[in-house]
Design a protein around this nucleic acid. Sequence first.
RNA 1: CGGGGCGUAGCGCAGCCUGGUAGCGCAUCUGGUUUGGGACCAGAGGGUCGCAAGUUCGAAUCUUGCCGCCCCGACCA
Length: 444
Amino acid sequence: MRLSRFFLPVLKETPSDAEIISHQLMLRAGMIRQQSAGIYTWLPLGWKVLQKIEQIVREEQNRAGAVEMLMPTLQSADLWRESGRYDDYGQEMLRITDRKKRDMLYGPTNEEMITDIFRSYCRSYKDVPKLLYHIQWKFRDEIRPRFGVMRGREFLMKDTYSFDTDEAAARKSYNRMFIAYLNTFTRLGLKAVPMRADTGPIGGDLSHEFIVLAETGESEVFCHADLVEMGAPGASVDFDGDLQPLVDQRTALYAATEEMHDPAAFAAVPKHRQLSARGIEVGHIFNFGTKYSEPMKANLTHPDGQDRPVHMGSYGVGVSRLFGAIIEAHHDEKGCIWPDSVAPFDLGIINMRAGDGACDSACDGAYASLVAAGLDPLYDDTDNRAGAKFATADLIGLPYQLVVGPRGLKEGKVEVKIRRSGETHELSLEDAVARLAAKDFANG
RNA sequence: CGGGGCGUAGCGCAGCCUGGUAGCGCAUCUGGUUUGGGACCAGAGGGUCGCAAGUUCGAAUCUUGCCGCCCCGACCA
């Protein structure tokens, strides 16, 4: 993409109503635009990143055996009356009336709808296990939206729902999501630690929040430092095998958010391994048994001929929130520093002197070669000054910059800059293109 | 919802206290000089001062009401 054709409204100054760094950078880099409190337009650059995040979430769900579908944003109030949540949900639920005066709502979540879908097709224990998910926009009319996209009213969420015969089987579904989440967040360049979450009136031990550690996190968290360094199981995991040992390994050590914190248990962690930090919740997995299946009569006929409510769980990932979380974890004073996996473009090509024959032809050639190699470069072909181009490239955080200027070209050299480390490599145009195409700079 | 704050040009702000027909920086446009880390000079355009009432000869400025947005708290992916 040529920058002259792209739509990239960057701001030199920080808008005054953005408090946290991710919000400020998203506005300055022309990634989002606020349309109303907690409601944002995703401008082209932000939309590209959001789609990349979404795709990684999707791939890891699929790998874990979940099946994608898409439920609507608008729901009928009837289903919610059936579960009893229509009145319970309160002001957070955006209620709408259609022309026939039917009560509708903009879905804040989809337990009722998926339960309804499941019960209308599945009757037998032979129909489970099932893991169904969708990635859809949700709306929660928060009392106070804040932190930009991290706490919006409209947000993109991946939610998976599991259906199993009983508690033991449900745990296996739970474990799949647990491991899938670890892999997902690692691919997004995040260190996420699973922490025991409050299970509320349901009880049991099957609820975890996945917390990304970031200095600007909204809540305080406490955990054993080993958990942070443990890393993800990776793509080689056999999701059909026994995942319990992998889960146990990560739930044995102490980890808790403020609400669940137990100072005495934390004190038992070796002193030098005690980690207290700030965190952002990016995922929440929850087994809720028959909470919805019972009132909504989603029953399975078991081998003994008896009908029993299906055991369910739900597994959420805040996709749009992850956007903010990634910036919180990856930025410096100049701007964003995207992990390669979600960068809006694979690299930037900076033509230091647009209009200069040598620079133009070198850049055009490099651009064509890199595109041919399957990369997606952003080619700054504008006639701005060098400084402005560098500032923009650093702000939007492309991982690599190919800098082509008249001075270097005279020596037959161009420059490749690694955004994260700031280090630069001077080399020939051919070498630069070849190494970029081979992703040779990814490991330093 | 409790507490605090802010709405003045696209963005960031001053002016308001002490009423007198709106200003600065950036951005934009034109011309020229420039060109390796957000250039310089000269000129130009752009504002129902959030909205509505009220006080006054006169309101961005004072009063009241409403709307919008932000921050802290309680709540949440």
